[in-house]
Design a protein around this nucleic acid. Structure first.
Lengths: 153, 153
DNA sequence: CTCAAAATGATATGATGTAACATTCTTGGG
DNA sequence: CCCAAGAATGTTACATCATATCATTTTGAG
């Protein structure tokens, strides 16, 4: 779990750098997401924090904290699943493209990838051709992970 | 509204062709979605059917009917918005690619487009490279429609 | 230290969605 | 035609996801 700690520290610096505060509760939520390494619902996080950290954080606060963490790009929301997941690139210092998510419809595993720019640009062009402007190319795709494909076969 | 009727008839034939039944309630829900022409939540549909058609359809039934209509490819679910929208291509007889949706984050307008196959294939390859299998390339993209971009500017 | 702003808590409620079982409707075989 | 079986719909209860509102606590700048 040293690794989680390291990432949280990094996140704290990232926040400090522009005057945002990674408070204790916010650290706890972020740690939970990092430890679990999977997408969790807000209420899953309430339970997890209670069980693992002995911290009772009301759901309302969890939602607020998740909003904060999303604004800081430390966490992403998955609309397909109504769940939240820690950003896979918190510790990278360079700017990132908007991520895309592969969600296993069977076991709920999630992989965060970055699709190459030219593909995204093609997508963007398709969107512009339809008279819309692409605000964010964060995509969520219905997938099966390798294991689940195997077992289904 | 003749047009809606025509589309519903077409949908009915489509269902009959493989032994599925487009019952009266199902027609009403589909008609509602077609008339409105926008994405609606299940509960929006409950209200709409009550107001416009004098039909009280319980939410549970609306969900079941929406499931049916999705299986028939007459309706799509938008996870970004938790809403449902009539397929833009019900009356086309040829098979369609999986659709992509452009959702205006400001006015909620939705455009259904079909991205060209080669772009989808590139996406699919990206997914396979990450060890996942793309089940369905139905994408939902956070956009702004042309009007909202103008007004924001 | 003090005060204002930020963060968190408490409570209620709205919105979305499903489980489980009952009832009604349709339809094909006798 | 009738009726059994399956399909569709209704009813009720509840699970899950999310936000509005106002109260309280914490924090940091002056």
């Amino acid at each position: 779990m040293k690794n989680v700690e390291r990432i949280v520290n990094h996140a704290e610096n990232h926040c400090k750098a522009h005057g945002a505060r990674l408070t204790n509760k916010r650290k706890i939520i972020l740690s939970g997401l990092l430890e679990v390494g999977k997408a969790m619902s807000a209420y899953d996080l309430v339970d997890y924090c209670k069980d693992q950290f002995g911290e009772s954080i009301p759901a309302m606060s969890v939602y607020r904290i998740l909003d904060f963490l999303q604004e800081e790009n430390l966490v992403h929301k998955l609309s397909l699943a109504n769940k939240y997941i820690a950003c896979a690139h918190i510790t990278c210092d360079h700017a990132h493209g908007v991520p895309q998510f592969l969600i296993c419809g069977n076991c709920q595993r999630v992989e965060e990838i970055t699709i190459n720019k030219s593909t995204i640009n093609t997508l963007r062009r398709n969107v512009e051709d339809a008279g819309f402007h692409l605000v964010s190319p964060q995509l969520e795709m219905n997938c099966l992970c390798h294991d689940c494909v195997e077992h289904a076969a």
